[in-house]
């Protein structure tokens, strides 16, 4: 099995590698997360109870607001936060928050990625090249 590459329209931050959490829901740190402990806590969220530490979130979009600007920094400081973010559509707060926290964020990802990626797959984010590389693994083939 070989790597598979998905391009993005915009990106910033350092390159990183990690396993992914895929959410088809639009994402908000305040609405979806217990930010103290880095856990999906929204009562009706498919990922409820899932720990996020060291993972890369892949989601088609975002909702709500401003709290994300501090949330990524706060969770990184506590060692419970995302290692990176990949979105379809994005708002400025997610980008500003990722920049302030020093984690990579990519937006405008090729929507075909959502047909391929599964929770636990391993990816490499390459912001400078504006691409997400899905690495060979058990669930991707």
């Amino acid at each position: 099995m070989s790597e598979r590459i998905f391009t993005c329209e915009r990106a910033l931050g350092p390159a990183t590698e990690a396993t992914v959490l895929v959410s088809m829901r639009t994402f908000s740190p305040r609405y979806d997360l217990d930010r103290e402990n880095g856990i999906f806590s929204r009562s009706d969220h498919p990922l409820q109870g899932q720990r996020i530490a060291g993972t890369i979130l892949v989601s088609p979009g975002v909702q709500g607001g401003i709290a994300g600007g501090w949330a990524f920094m706060m969770m990184r400081g506590r060692g419970v936060g995302f290692a990176g973010l990949v979105f379809g559509k994005v708002n400025p707060v997610m980008v500003q928050g990722a920049a302030a926290a020093g984690i990579p964020i990519l937006a405008g990802v090729d929507p075909a990625i959502f047909e391929v990626l599964r929770n636990g797959d391993h990816v490499r984010l390459e912001p400078a090249a504006r691409r997400v590389v899905v690495l060979p693994g058990p669930s991707y083939g």
């Binding site: 930010r35 103290e36 709290a67 501090w70 949330a71 920094m73 706060m74 400081g77 302030a100």
Partner: peptide, 15 residues
């Protein structure tokens, strides 16, 4: 600006 301890935690305070 939005900024209180609940939203920023120790990391924000340090910032």
């Amino acid at each position: 600006m939005m900024g209180d301890y609940e939203v920023m935690g120790n990391a924000g305070q340090s910032f």
